[in-house]
Design a protein around this nucleic acid. Structure first.
Lengths: 190, 190
DNA sequence: CAACCTATATACCGAACGGTATAATAACGG
DNA sequence: CCGTTATTATACCGTTCGGTATATAGGTTG
């Protein structure tokens, strides 16, 4: 791994563990065994480092989406594929996923939030589109597509949060994804 | 309002807008028109100020819970009451609610997260209890009480997040709460 | 070899950080 | 009116912050 990748890796670990604002540039380069000018050579600034990290990782997320989502299937299967993309991306790099969530929930004026917002919005709109194009299966949603999208992402994110708290090492299996989607679609009484 | 309350108010606004780590003690006292020793006189430290703020606000949240939750009713009504408590507390002070969410989603090693965690856990356990005591109505949940509690809180929090993004000024009405609970209980096909 | 470009280090900048020693002021009880 | 206590300000502490001017080492290219 070259030093650019090394710096991104170290930054990700520290941002995840302590929070973007709470991590100093010195701390990042110390962990990488380098010095500050190297970091500034590659990324220009601390926020530039975060932006490069986000850009790299969200490109991977797009690949997961392409692999698992077919919008022409039954809505049950589309949602299952969507959920699988989220779960697999989460499993591939839990630290980054949790970092992304933390950034998205952080304060609106914070530059770290503003850096992550466009990416989160992009994937949120993708989920909205899934519900839009399923309208012939779900019937008249009365403009509730966005509410469904929020509910869907919220359900998944909170499940993943629980995973991190309760099963720090264990992988989520396919049966659990199916159960969660069933609960989302048919409610807790089913 | 005395200066202690004033400092808590100013801190809350700044923490909400910029994030705990991104706000300096100097900034807080400047906004309040005071000086640093006053802050340290009342709260001892920056984290002490946050803890006092959390303690005060979560006491209010407990009152909302007592007012709206009757565990001896039908599960539909209990969940509706629980949701109402969350929504009303949110409406009473949106800034604080969003701050609490941001803190809870922040990094585990961050002291701001550690300050808010006990309170969030307390209310999570309360929701778990609601599902536990509804077991005779929901049937055998196979130990999924915690999953339901996570799903319930996740659904509400993401809805409130959406509220803040889309309708910054508008109040959530009772019909929307009922619709959200219906979706949670019966799924999106209902 | 000379010029150049990439990548890295030494050493430093001014500003802001959280926090405090000390003292002045204000309010209150005797 | 005096002593005490609660509250606030002035001025400062050492440390760390994000960021940079400058130099050097190594490879590449003319």
């Amino acid at each position: 791994m070259d030093n650019k990748q090394l710096l991104m890796q170290c930054a990700k670990e520290l941002f995840y563990a302590k929070g973007y604002d709470a991590v100093g540039v010195q701390e990042i380069v110390d962990r990488a065994g380098l010095t500050k000018p190297t970091l500034y050579y590659y990324f220009g600034s601390k926020i530039g480092l975060l932006k490069t990290l986000l850009d790299t990782k969200f490109s991977e997320f797009r690949e997961f989406m392409k692999r698992f989502v077919r919008s022409d299937e039954r809505i049950e299967d589309v949602l299952y594929g969507l959920a699988t993309a989220y779960f697999d991306f989460f499993e591939q790099d839990r630290e980054f996923y949790m970092l992304m969530m933390a950034l998205f929930y952080s304060a609106r004026e914070n530059e770290a939030y503003q850096a992550v917002k466009p990416y989160v919005t992009e994937f949120y709109e993708l989920v909205v589109q899934v519900f839009e194009s399923a309208s012939y299966q779900l019937g008249n949603m009365n403009g509730r597509q966005r509410q469904f999208a929020i509910g869907f992402i919220g359900t998944i994110n909170h499940y993943l949060l629980l995973q991190c708290e309760v099963n720090p090492g264990q992988r989520t299996d396919r049966a659990q994804i199916a159960a969660l989607m069933k609960q989302f679609m048919y409610g807790i009484f089913s």
